[in-house]
């Protein structure tokens, strides 16, 4: 019901004035807007600005043991960022991770949502809840749990974990991917499932009269109609992947293969604990920009495809 209403509201910048007068109720508006606005400026915009400013400075010492001074360095830190091998290999690592993990996770979520919606499954309510439960578990705790489950001598999967060392350098990235998948499949499934429920029954009626079977309906009717939900979950997943931190940070206690620069955010964290705040700020800025560009590019790409 919400859906229909939202789509109908055209929010152009030049919206025709409704009958409520801007002047008459003017004083209520600051009351509603200022608390959020103030906090948003203080804890969102200011930090972003401050990170940019910090990234333009560099620490200089007079002599080896002289007092440290911050001096304006222009793009010196960014030069360092672009020459920083470990940082770029961490970006490469999360991109590989994302290219594999995001489609697997969303594919599973889509499959489960379609099955829940297909009418083939009894006990829908139970399954929906069961698949969603891991989402209540924060990344840190999920990573601790799976860390134990992977460990060769404690795991209930002993036959598997004694044959394959999931915590070795070759596998640990995918071991982490499994933790993220485990937590988020149910959540993404629920997003897709909600938008499946919003499709009016007449649409299927028409397809069935045309002789389409359940698989055909799923493929040619349902999936195109829930595309906006899939796009949304993909964007959120891309953002999440580039921000990976808690899970690899926890895995550092289980596996020596996870270095202090394993993901971009781990690099930011370990650079700031050196401490080299200026360089860490430059890492942060580059990472935030990369995230922004990637999710925007993806949105654009899907919109263009949709328009054709």
């Amino acid at each position: 019901m919400t859906q229909a209403t939202i789509v109908d509201v055209p929010e152009g910048t030049e919206a025709p004035p409704r009958r409520s007068g801007a002047v008459r109720y003017g004083r209520a508006v600051p009351f509603f807007v200022v608390p959020f606005g103030l906090l948003f400026v203080l804890f969102y915009l200011l930090p972003i600005g401050y990170a940019i400013v910090q990234s333009l400075y560099t620490v200089e010492r007079t002599g080896t043991f002289g007092p440290a001074r911050e001096v304006f360095g222009g793009l010196v830190q960014y030069g360092r960022v672009f020459q920083d091998g470990p940082f770029w290999s961490s970006i490469g690592r999360v991109l590989v991770f994302g290219v594999v993990q995001v489609p697997v996770m969303l594919g599973l979520a889509l499959l489960l949502a379609l099955l829940l919606d297909s009418g083939l499954v009894k006990g829908r309510r139970f399954f929906r809840l069961a698949f969603f439960v891991p989402y209540a578990i924060p990344g840190v705790i999920a990573a601790i749990m799976w860390g134990f489950l992977y460990s060769p001598n404690l795991s209930p999967l002993k036959p598997v974990t004694s044959a394959i060392d999931f915590l070795s350098a070759d596998f640990v990235l995918w071991a982490i991917a499994n933790v993220v998948t485990w937590v988020y499949v149910g959540y993404n499934m629920l997003i897709i499932y909600s938008s499946l429920l919003a499709i009016p029954a007449e649409v299927y009626e028409a397809a069935r009269i045309d002789g389409a079977g359940p698989i055909r309906i799923a493929w040619s009717v349902k999936i195109p109609l829930v595309m906006p939900a899939i796009v949304l979950t993909t964007v959120f997943s891309i953002i999440g992947t580039l921000q990976l931190l808690a899970e690899p940070q926890v895995f550092r206690s289980f596996s020596s293969a996870v270095s202090s620069t394993y993901t971009p955010n781990l690099t930011v964290y370990s650079t700031s604990s050196v401490p080299n705040f200026n360089l860490a700020a430059a890492f942060s800025v580059v990472l935030a920009l990369a995230t922004f560009v990637l999710s925007f590019a993806f949105l654009r790409f899907t919109q263009r495809k949709g328009a054709r």
Partner: peptide
């Protein structure tokens, strides 16, 4: 409510959605 800067405010807030919380932690 209709008020001046409404669309600007909304757009700034909306782009805030895309700023990952982890990017803010260090500058904070």
């Amino acid at each position: 409510y209709q008020f001046r800067g409404r669309e600007l405010l909304f757009n700034v807030v909306l782009s805030g959605v895309l700023v990952p919380a982890t990017a803010l932690a260090l500058p904070l």
